[in-house]
Simulated scan of single mutants.
Amino acid sequence: MSIRFLRRARYLIFWGTLGMAVSARAQEKLHVLAFESTQHLRDFFRWTPQSTPLVSGHRGGMEVGFPENSIAAFENTLKHTPAFFEIDPRLTKDSVIILMHDATLDRTTTGTGRVADYTWEELKKLKLKDAQGRVTAHGIPTLAEVLEWARGKTVLNFDKKDVPLAMTAAIIRKYRADAYVMLTVHTAEQALYYYRDNPERMFSAFVKTPQALAEYERAGVPWDHMIAYIGPEVTPANQEMYRLLHARGVRCMISAAPTYDKLKTKEERAAAYRSVIRDGASVLESDLPIEAAEAIKAMSRK
């Protein structure tokens, strides 16, 4: 065996080992939520009196430099805290599912006009803007790319935009993603459609009133398959919903995105986030998930 060969072998082993170490360190930086099965997913989100508050990144989060609905935003959040992410699947002109909250491109990308008027080949040339309107290096992701990325790292909560229910169900099935996907449903009928398609599915359901709760009861979708979105702020009416939903083992979510996230100072926002948890919610959805997680950290049980 030649000296040259031995040197080359040592070189490859060194860089291979270094590469594995760097990869391991990068993975260690992420606070992952990984589930082996749909049952494991449902058990994790089940409410009990000992439940630890959870944080959901609204549109993945809107931190400076990290555009909403981007893999970069998801990874940035997970470097600081465990979280799951509400995202916005939307269709292109040629029926590719991408992530985009608005029906138009102007606010969040370097493009203009309606998303539905462009093909995926055209849209992939654009760059995303952050919440301050600054152009970033990040492009628009497809839902398929995000599903591949999220496996073993986090849970994705699909909001309802313009993607047909059947198409949404099909892509979850294609990527075998039920153990790390939940579906936002605005009505009991939507939940029932997905449940009949696959009775293992998990939902983030709009259950803001006792009347809406009764509709889900009549539909027969099991309560251990869902968390409940009850509104955007602390109100006296929430107490009745906590009582009804907790009796069924359902976590209640408040979204601070349209309300408390818009307070002017970090101190004001932190106080508001803590008030949401003290009020009885056990899921806090926020445009600022890193800030929200830090604010409620002391309230969490190990």
Rank of each mutant, 00 (worst) to 15 (best):
R107K: 14
R107T: 08
F206G: 09
A170K: 07
K124M: 11
Q39E: 14
E200L: 14
P67D: 01
E267K: 13
V32E: 11
D130L: 12
I71K: 00
A137W: 03
T259A: 04
A219M: 06
K125A: 12
F45M: 10
I290A: 00
V185S: 04
T168H: 04
D159K: 11
R173W: 04
R10Y: 01
D162W: 03
I172V: 14
M299K: 15
V146D: 07
A177R: 07
P89Y: 02
R90A: 05
A272Q: 03
I254G: 04
T108W: 01
F35V: 03
A83F: 01
E268H: 00
D88I: 14
F14T: 15
R114A: 10
H40V: 03
V185I: 14
A237F: 10
A137G: 08
A73M: 01
A103W: 01
A73Q: 02
K161S: 04
K127M: 03
K208V: 10
F44P: 08
A131M: 08
A72V: 01
L126Q: 14
A9P: 06
K124E: 13
R278C: 06
G19N: 04
I71C: 08
A177I: 02
L244A: 10
E294M: 06
A212P: 09
S56P: 05
I171V: 13
T259K: 07
K29M: 14
G16Q: 07
A298D: 10
P141G: 10
V115C: 07
T184V: 04
R173D: 08
A292H: 02
Y260V: 02
L12K: 10
D178M: 05
L183V: 15
L105I: 11
H186S: 15
S282M: 15
A131V: 13
V146P: 05
S51A: 09
A247T: 00
R59E: 03
R243D: 13
A24P: 05
G220D: 14
E267P: 15
D130I: 08
R301E: 12
Y118P: 02
D197A: 13
T154A: 12
R107W: 04
M299N: 08
L244G: 10
L91G: 09
M202P: 12
A205Y: 07
A270L: 03
T154R: 02
A257P: 08
G280P: 06
G133S: 15
Q190K: 05
T142V: 15
E86P: 05
T81N: 01
S2K: 05
P49G: 10
A144P: 07
G133H: 13
F203C: 12
P258W: 00
P236E: 09
D261G: 00
T235V: 10
Q39V: 12
T81P: 04
A179I: 02
M167F: 06
P210T: 05
K153Y: 11
L12Q: 09
F44G: 07
I140C: 06
Q190P: 13
A177C: 05
R301K: 15
G61N: 00
S95N: 10
K124I: 11
P49F: 00
S300I: 07
T119I: 12
M20C: 14
F74W: 02
A237D: 08
F85K: 08
R201T: 07
S37F: 06
L126K: 12
T110I: 13
E148M: 09
T77F: 01
E36K: 03
V96W: 06
E28P: 10
L143A: 12
V163T: 06
L213P: 10
V221D: 15
P232L: 06
T265N: 11
K297P: 07
Y118K: 12
F85N: 10
L12D: 00
